[in-house]
């Protein structure tokens, strides 16, 4: 009997395996991201560094500062654009954080788009449409990857508040 279940031309085992790996990875990357970006002492130390070196505090939006302090107490600091840029401009931290963010980006894109592709191929039956949909989605992933990596690399370069 002519069977459609012949040997597949291309193995998908690698993508499935990466999906698992990136999934596990993302848990830790997300926790780190949230901690550093939103709850951290690193932010405070960068602020303090600016204060000691330059003798001035980075400017925060007054409204943002007020909102954060109302919620988290009078000592809470807003992670401002300045602080993020300074972190990425710092020669020591830059390599670490840029590397971290690029890794985060690749993991998130692969994980998300592998999932999206599964959904697309679940619902699109026509082989041609399927090919178009999956090609489009991987192209979108590639475009996002390029934009993302570019943004991470140039962010904070030579930034001075």
């Amino acid at each position: 009997m002519a069977s459609q279940y012949g040997k597949s031309r291309r193995s998908n085992a690698g993508n499935w395996f990466l999906h698992r790996i990136t999934g596990t990875f993302l848990v830790f990357l997300l926790i780190t991201h949230f901690w550093v970006q939103h709850y951290d002492d690193t932010t405070r130390s960068v602020v303090e560094q600016v204060v000691t070196e330059k003798g001035e505090r980075p400017e925060y939006s007054e409204a943002a500062q007020k909102a954060v302090r109302a919620k988290f107490g009078a000592d809470a600091e807003v992670t401002s654009y300045d602080v993020l840029m300074l972190r990425l401009a710092d020669p020591v931290y830059a390599v670490l954080w840029k590397g971290f963010n690029i890794l985060f980006l690749i993991a998130a894109l692969h994980h998300g788009f592998y999932g999206l592709n599964n959904i697309l191929t679940d619902y699109i039956r026509n082989p041609l449409n399927r090919k178009i949909a999956t090609s489009l989605s991987w192209t979108a992933a590639l475009v996002l990857l390029v934009i993302g990596v570019y943004s991470v690399i140039v962010a904070g370069w030579g930034y001075a508040p």
């Binding site: 597949s8 193995s11 998908n12």
Partner: peptide
Amino acid sequence: LPVLDSDKGLWKCY
């Protein structure tokens, strides 16, 4: 295994 390693096979098991 190559019969299972396709979009008709193992990887569609969620």
